[in-house]
């Protein structure tokens, strides 16, 4: 299928919004992290959002860590 249109792709095929909702911004010990909520209600850390390089060294904030 070829669509001849000046519109951009995401105007024609809107993104599935549910893909965005599984990432949440939460604060762990004062550091904001992006995490996905797991079925049992705990969170798995995806990314640390901080300018402090030491926050990235904290093992309890390492990506993949599960916070209950």
């Amino acid at each position: 299928m070829i669509l001849y249109t000046p519109l951009s792709e995401h105007d024609i095929f809107p993104e599935d919004q549910s893909k965005y909702s599984n990432l949440e911004l939460i604060s762990v010990n004062g550091v904001s992290v992006q995490a996905t909520r797991l079925k049992n209600g705990s969170y798995r850390i995806v990314q640390v959002l901080s300018t402090n390089p030491q926050d990235f060294m904290k093992s309890d904030l390492a990506p993949g860590t599960i916070i209950s």
Partner: peptide
């Protein structure tokens, strides 16, 4: 069945221990 924190650390970072240092006066963006 959850892996221990040590195994988790190795899986995620490829190492068992990360260096600890005093608070930095320089921040990274």
């Amino acid at each position: 069945s959850q892996p221990s924190s040590l195994v988790q650390k190795i899986q995620q970072l490829g190492q068992s221990n990360v260096a600890q240092a005093p608070d930095s006066n320089i921040h990274v963006l």
